[in-house]
Design a protein around this nucleic acid. Structure first.
Lengths: 378, 378
DNA sequence: CACGCGGGTCAAATCGATTCGAGCACGTGC
DNA sequence: GCACGTGCTCGAATCGATTTGACCCGCGTG
């Protein structure tokens, strides 16, 4: 009764085929000697019972492996995926892992749930780690968007002895790292602007930490940056120039780049001292800056040059093509994937640094002779 | 020796604590009567051994559940995630499932690997199903972007008896469906244009099938459409008007919308018969159309009106705000999540249809009195 | 004082497969 | 004819937990 309803097991198949369970297992796994005849008998029995291969759960328990790689997003999934950078990396990762039959489990990053405010008193923010980190089965976890100092996510994984692969900086003891030459990248972008004659260069930065602030930053704030790649990009800019202004954004999104550039180009600086160029830490921010410039009636690159970082496709920025420091996004994902495979194979952790390349577009040009006042069209 | 190195098991913890395995299990699961004293003893032993909770694999085998929900993407992940629509739905889904401790496993959709061309001869396309579909452990699978007739993905899941939840159309026997009022939606958009006086209305469509074609479609091609939501959106348009031209795109991406609109507005139609309005099946396509219009020197909405579908944020379209038929994307994801929970709870499958709403923006306006020739600025 | 009841603990069965080593039958070589 | 391979099959242990029902002990009641 009950068992005719339940999904058939290997044991029942073996019974029907008149062989032992071990032999039936061999028929499916092919990991041992077995007569073609016997195998066919087992397969026929399986077909008759509607048995479609061994239950992964049993296999996993035996082998001690789940075939699952946890990918910890740096943000809520909704926002993580709005960033084409994240998406392309994930794409490369899924490609490599999928080819090995490994699945990718999505894990929302640490949500710093703000402590409940009880009559004015701020209770400490609760560092809520996603329950999946505590309990989901996974063979390796990938921290694609870096590791913070004192990272609750990392701590949870270590406690469970889940091996870790890190992308984007933040060296972790015993874990492979796939890094990017962030610092050289922003330096490259700034030098490009300098070669075009620009000296008054503004900067739009990636988030410095989880605080989601926006506004100009000073030396004190600069020192607080705890996101590794942001730190490196900040440093790279400063390797080449001291930006006339540096504007922090809460996330790498077009609207924030737009807001920042609107302030930088419009309200903030006296017109005669307006920056002639903007270097942004990401293409999305840079695209926002281009849009802000357009809205202010400034021509790009005649009135203001804009350079970005990442090298993503921006078809909607048309007809402009963003000057940008390209990073090998898909390759980064693939490198992370290979690092995962390496960990599973028990290899020594390696540290890869991927190169960057400046690709000039139409959004950077020679510095204007005079800074003409913008004739706003509004 | 060997065992001091291996991860501790519940048995070893029990041994150290001087209790039985069953009692130790109780200490962690809390699913039975146990003295506080005994529990503390077990927990202390666990801490000493560095045991961090029961191994999910063992638990899963016993309970027969993996706690994993497979999400089948409609495309390669890289392209699936370029679509904000997909992303928002996924976001809502992860939210609901995450709250229940369920993990989301990413599964690339069927890749219709084109058969290898051997000297001019086209061998039949191989319907390659992702191996994860065959072998990964999952309690339910979500086909977020619909089911095709004769769907290899669905077939693989049925064979394994994995329960299925479907989004976006394509009723499946015994599976809950979360649908959208696609047909009413496009009809709404067209009627809005008609109220503004438009009669020469062009259409930019979502892909009709996996062929990735682009170009104008005729009645024959129309009949071939096998994507459910595309079919409904096509029908909705025709409920209100016969479009003067209907242009098929290979994917819902800005660049394809731009290409289509460039043809429709520029090269294709004699200028005097140029459509005064475009209704697109998605916001991304519509945004591409707006960009194409701009590039052709046409003013939006003075020269041409554009309406989209989905209601996603398009900050980079600024200062334009797209007129669009909004669908509750996050809610769709949440509804899918709840459907998954329903399936797991053994409830009867239900069929939900989500409503749509026309939200006028700045990209639609009254039909121009005369169709002025565009003074291209190039 | 005996009995019953119930809270707490435990032994053993179970989930569904993999894998190791033993065993068996058949064929070959000496 | 006997010993030895070789090649396939099988039994049993194992992976790590959960869960059921038995059991024990102490306390309250008749």
């Amino acid at each position: 009764m009950g068992r005719s309803n339940a999904r058939p097991t290997l044991a029942r198949v073996a019974e029907l085929a008149g062989v032992s369970v071990s032999t039936a297992s061999l028929a499916f796994s092919g990991a041992g000697p077995i007569t073609a005849e016997t195998r066919d008998k087992v397969l026929a029995a399986a077909a008759e019972l509607g048995y479609s291969g061994p239950n992964p759960l049993g296999r996993q328990l035996r082998s001690g492996r789940s075939g699952i790689v946890g990918v910890v997003l740096g943000d809520q999934p909704g926002r993580a995926f709005r960033d084409p950078v994240a998406v392309k990396v994930l794409d490369g990762l899924v490609d490599v892992l999928g080819a090995e039959g490994l699945g990718v489990l999505l894990i929302p990053g640490v949500r710093a749930v703000p402590g409940p405010r009880v009559d004015g008193e701020e209770t400490a923010p609760v560092p809520a780690v996603d329950p999946l980190l505590e309990s989901a089965a996974m063979d390796v976890a990938v921290l694609v968007w870096g590791v913070l100092t004192d990272d609750a996510t990392l701590a949870a994984l270590r406690r469970r002895d889940v091996p870790v692969v890190v992308g984007e900086g933040g060296r972790v003891e015993g874990a492979p790292l796939v890094a990017l030459d962030d610092r050289a990248g922003t330096a490259l972008a700034v030098r490009h602007l300098q070669e075009l004659g620009h000296t008054r260069i503004a900067e739009i930065t990636l988030p410095l930490d989880a605080a989601e602030r926006s506004g100009p930053i000073d030396a004190a704030r600069l020192a607080q940056a705890d996101r590794t790649s942001t730190r490196h990009r900040l440093a790279g800019v400063r390797d080449a120039v001291e930006p006339v202004i540096s504007w922090e954004t809460p996330a790498s999104l077009v609207e924030h780049g737009r807001d920042a550039a609107t302030e930088i180009l419009g309200a903030w600086v006296p017109e005669t001292e307006r920056p002639t160029a903007i270097v942004a830490h990401s293409d999305l921010l840079a695209a926002g800056a281009v849009i802000a410039a357009r809205e202010l009636g400034l021509r790009v690159p005649d009135d203001v040059s804009v350079a970005g970082f990442d090298g993503i496709d921006l078809p909607w920025l048309s007809p402009d093509v963003l000057t940008s420091v390209h990073q090998p996004l898909q390759a980064k994902g693939a490198a992370l994937g290979r690092a995962v495979l390496g960990v599973l194979a028990g290899e020594e952790p390696t540290c890869t640094t991927l190169p960057v390349e400046l690709v000039p577009g139409t959004t950077t040009g020679p510095v204007p002779d005079v800074v003409r006042p913008a004739d706003a069209q509004a």
